[in-house]
């Protein structure tokens, strides 16, 4: 297993952000972490990266306990989110050079050039990050996330702010990485159609707990409690969100 999450919990005093979350991820799998806002998706990803210390539970990456092998594991994985940024005054190229050095990437200039072209942002290499649009920022963030050819890629809404054409291109790049290098991907998204097409398996979270996990069709059947022949994650999402609204 590339990733094993066992009984992971995070409590802030009386507030429980994540409770008893367990799932695993095999090599080359693409797993979608879904749920309404406040479901605990980002907290879970941040715990997987060691940015938040769990209150209970264990994270193992490549069979190693994260807390014992933090640096070794972080060298082999990477992360991006549209909600974090790179230093704003530095140019795209300067930022990627910094992170290439941080991850000790071999032939950094070649790798950076490849990625800039792959994500269609080659023309922006000398632009300060502060001048980029949100979609361009998302793509530069993806370049950063792919710099070290990660074996496990954690993506928080990887296609947020992208127009459908660019979002499609990004998906193709991720699928190519999965096919060619066996990259394992864990992503969150609010675009249910995209999740249905991209992910082999889904973990659906609500109020910090896993309420269902399986393939998109299994999730659809489990939450809608109906026999369906096609996945309908949008409906699943709305059902869960409306349950919350109608709750006393």
């Amino acid at each position: 297993m590339v990733l094993e999450v066992k009984h992971l919990s995070k409590r802030y005093g009386a507030l429980t952000a994540v409770e008893d979350v367990s799932f695993s991820l095999a090599q080359g799998e693409i797993l979608g972490l879904l749920g309404p806002n406040g479901a605990g998706k980002s907290t879970t990803i941040h715990m997987l990266l060691g940015l938040i210390t769990p209150s209970a539970g264990e994270v193992r990456v490549f069979g190693l306990r994260f807390c014992d092998y933090r640096k070794h594991i972080l060298q082999l994985i990477n992360f991006t989110s549209p909600y974090v940024s790179l230093p704003l005054r530095l140019t795209v190229m300067e930022n990627l050079r910094v992170f290439a050095r941080l991850y000790n990437v071999e032939h950094p200039q070649k790798r950076i050039d490849e990625l800039l072209e792959l994500f269609g942002v080659g023309a922006l290499r000398n632009q300060p990050v502060a001048r980029l649009s949100s979609g361009e920022n998302t793509r530069v963030g993806l370049c950063k996330a792919m710099l070290n050819n990660p074996r496990l890629l954690l993506l928080d809404e990887p296609t947020a702010s992208l127009d459908p054409e660019i979002a499609w291109q990004v998906k193709q790049v991720l699928l190519q990485a999965q096919r060619e290098f066996g990259t394992t991907i864990l992503c969150t998204s609010h675009n249910m159609l995209e999740v249905e097409r991209l992910c082999n398996r889904i973990v659906f979270m609500h109020h910090g707990r896993v309420i269902a996990q399986g393939s998109p069709i299994e999730i659809t059947r489990a939450i809608l409690k109906e026999e369906r022949s096609e996945p309908a994650l949008e409906e699943v999402f709305l059902r869960v969100a409306r349950l919350e609204e109608s709750a006393p």
Partner: peptide, 18 residues
């Protein structure tokens, strides 16, 4: 503070940097 202002802390500390 430069890291804080540019929201770069997560990028730095999700890398193998201590």
């Amino acid at each position: 503070l430069d890291e804080l202002w540019s929201r770069n802390l997560i990028n730095l500390f999700s890398a193998p940097l201590d």
